[in-house]
Design a protein around this nucleic acid. Structure first.
Lengths: 116, 116
DNA sequence: ACTATAAATGAAAATTTATTCATATAAAAA
DNA sequence: TTTTTATATGAATAAATTTTCATTTATAGT
């Protein structure tokens, strides 16, 4: 893998590796939102939201449009959506495996009880 | 998006959001590696590598196999590969757009020079 | 059994990232 | 034009992550 690609990759993953930014992106996935809509829905401070949006902007993950005195953000990037979808699959996979292992562990415990 | 999915997502993205871990994964993408192979190839400290591998292990991104006194790590997860590939596409897209914008900026500068 | 090598681990130190706070900017409303 | 509302931004603080250092564990070779 080329080094600058790796660097850019780490930037985009770093960006997605925050629950708050993921929450923002989840909102934007449905429809464009103004900053204050995001603030209200996620109960975050305005300044914190602005800082996060700044990062998403700089990485070209979202675009901006001024409407009156509001600023609307929207997803800019279909790749991000694909990425999120794939990642969700991965998570489903892991979560399922975990609950499967729990089930197995449960049966083992059960079986051990019988043998006591 | 469910909250626990979002949480897991942030974990996996956080994991991928590090150049060093990406470098490790790039090595493992080719073939399983022992800890000391990784240390040598990436010129990292042994302890740092071990800590990073611990995280990858705990997230079930890699699996471990002892061979003699070496410990070999390998990618466990095809989803991660897909994720990395998708992300590379995104990066290509952004990098291309950036160089496109540079080109445009260059032409504008050129054009402005003419008008001076 | 003793020594050397490979890797893991815990805790402290260093670095990075995120949040808050104070303030600035910009546009609409009064 | 002054006031209000929405957002942005810089700097300080707080929190999280990463690295380093010292030590431990485990295994192979002597």
């Amino acid at each position: 893998m080329k080094k600058d690609v790796q660097h850019e990759l780490s930037i985009i993953f770093k960006l997605l590796g925050s629950e708050r930014r993921l929450a923002i992106l989840a909102l934007l996935r449905d429809k464009p939102c103004s900053v204050s809509e995001i603030v209200d829905q996620l109960s975050m401070e305005q300044s914190a939201v602005s800082h996060q949006l700044q990062m998403l902007r700089e990485a070209q993950v979202v675009t901006v449009e001024k409407v009156g005195r509001s600023v609307y953000y929207q997803l800019n990037d279909s790749h991000i959506l694909t990425l999120l979808n794939n990642a969700e699959h991965h998570v489903d996979h892991v979560l399922r495996q975990m609950s499967h292992e729990e089930a197995v562990a449960g049966k083992q415990a059960e079986s051990q009880e019988k043998h006591q």
